[in-house]
Design a protein around this nucleic acid. Structure first.
Lengths: 212, 212, 212, 212
DNA sequence: AATGAATGAGGCTTCATTCAT
DNA sequence: TATGAATGAAGCCTCATTCAT
């Protein structure tokens, strides 16, 4: 009985504690679907299963929603990239090939890769968010790729290329795939081979030419 | 007298005829600066040196402004790319290196490379514009690069890679540079060497290895 | 154990019984500080040390709070005035001078003299409250002053003025002092001599001229 | 014909130029009727014969409306008081009696005497407006009365009272009449004799006692 | 008796668009 | 062709009030 009571209460509590996250997820969906300005608070609320006013119990306003969202999504985004890269320092070439395949799959499946596009589209009006993203995600992702490439050079897998330039060269195709998939919505791109192909070409470009 | 009158009239006419273009340019600037939704008709008008109402003499409304803008900018954009590519079919490798340098310079100088970002940021709400852009610019640009690469393979400059894949791989860095320059506004990128570096790596990746 | 329990309970009860009064006091403070409309139920609750919902256990709503407040404050306000006046019927002139001094001190010390201003500022929207105040406080206060003056005339302290007019003439400075102190917040007025001065002049105006 | 055209245009222009004033007048009416917070922009607009949005062509918002209103009303208010007072420096006693009668009449006729009540009721939330009013109207009005009384003393009409104290004593009844008329709306007060009576008593209080 | 999450009506303000001149 | 006053729909946000716990 006492247990029953506690359970009930817990249900109630759990909802209240989960609200901010539910709202943020709803906001992400709306922002991606309509853009920051065209997204209506009421639609975000509806998507989260609450009413307009409820959002303001947890967030100061629309801009706060955007900021909290970036905050919530950006760190894991960067960390996943880094962790995956650093876990494969023993075999840089193989790891880069794997990364290409994984990213290719995830891009098609997860909403998370729509976030960079959201960030880009609001970057002129929220320069600090753009900066945050640049430093937390792009810079860290590039640094992780750089570490892989530098190690590949040390191991003799790659030629002695400039790791920074090579890492940067790899960001391009990733961004292109995101935009192609989530914004321009080009057809046929989702067969999963493209990014791997791009990386192959890049890897070819930096690899040691062992066989003539 | 007649001369005077005619002169005055001509001046006046010229302005009147130039209006739509001035307005579109103003609109482009505002759209890039604030995004489509946040751009105010009044600010566009002010930038163009007219009043709000005058815009409606030439355009149906805000969305029409956007469409006309894309229309006006997209075709030349694609044609310039194509012309430059096709003019260099005699030396694909050299042409691609040149293209990288030219694009790199133009990206930093011209507002024109902010247009793709604008298109991307509104693509979810105006899918037809996205499609238009995809087909008119991205697809044609890719096809032009493809022709270059195919010719390079025929000439023996490049290995027998898949021209489509290689062309696509080259779009990524271009897009990255645009976004980095016009949206994320990363520092230090505008030294002009990066895109050339990326292309070098890619060209390395597809080039025939003449020297062992 | 029983004792402990009862003690706890009593403490608890006492608080519960005190709640309505605490809430009303908090409401008065907020109403005075912000006005009726701008006062927020949440701030009233916070001032009273409870949560928003608790107020509704004791009062129907915001307007009920206002009415209860006027009810609670108005009667004692009037009664104090009356009692003080009637207690001094033996020496009207002296009593009026004393009243001036007492009021002057209390105006500066107590929130109670901010109530008339509150009433005035909401009087157009709650005419019944205004009427209530008019009849319960202003009219009774004036009547008390009138009795004093009439007695003064009878005693030969004052000339045979119209007691009603003279009483009314004395309300003005009091109101002016309240407004000056609690609303317009003029500087320097709180030295305590002004109201006495005003009354002196008024008393001079109605006093018998014993000395030629 | 040319005249006709010009007339039409003038009509149009005149309306546009008159708008701010019409809106302010409407705002004053609403603010007095409902108080600042309860007054709705839409009702103000309706009273002015325009739509909500039109107000924002001329004023920044609701608070700006209030400020412009005070600005517009306060100066003439003070100037009229001063001019009337200074015009009568030759006969202070008579002038003060006249002033009492004039004010008494105007209080009953004009909305202008509801402004002090409006100011008082918002003074806690807009302290700068209160200060402005205090300095521009109350202080100047008091100074004008002071000049009259000082001159009266010099001329021998009045005893050698403190002019500042006497002037201040005269403000009270005026304020009381305003509040009584426009806020508490006491019945029967508008017979026009009261303020004159108050002033008589005050004048008696400060006058030289020529007859024993 | 008390909490605090949630509601929803309603206000202020903005801005694309229209239209008389 | 051009103006700019005016509209009115729509969005953000607040807050008095309710209610499950």
């Amino acid at each position: 009985m006492a247990v029953g009571k506690s359970t009930v209460r817990r249900t109630w509590r759990r909802r209240a504690e989960a609200r901010p996250d539910e709202i943020l997820t709803a906001a992400l969906d709306e922002f991606i679907a309509c853009g920051f300005d065209a997204a209506r608070m009421e639609d975000i609320a509806a998507r989260a299963g609450v009413t307009k006013g409820a959002i303001y119990l947890y967030f100061e306003g629309k801009e706060a929603l955007l900021r909290a969202l970036i905050e919530r999504e950006v760190a894991p985004f960067a960390e996943r990239l880094e962790a995956a890269a650093d876990a494969g320092l023993a075999d840089p070439a193989g790891t880069l090939r794997q990364l290409a395949q994984i990213i290719n799959v995830v891009i098609g499946q997860s909403r998370i890769f729509a976030i960079p596009i959201l960030v880009v589209s609001i970057s002129n009006r929220f320069p600090d968010l753009a900066q945050h993203y640049r430093e937390r995600v792009v810079a860290r992702g590039r640094a992780a790729l750089e570490r892989l490439i530098r190690r590949g050079v040390e191991l003799g897998q790659f030629r002695s290329v400039d790791p920074a330039a090579a890492a940067r060269a790899m960001m391009g195709p990733i961004m292109f795939e995101m935009i192609w998939t989530h914004a321009l919505k080009g057809p046929g791109g989702r067969d999963g081979a493209w990014l791997a192909n791009h990386f192959d070409i890049l890897l070819n470009g930096i690899s040691r030419q062992e066989d003539p």
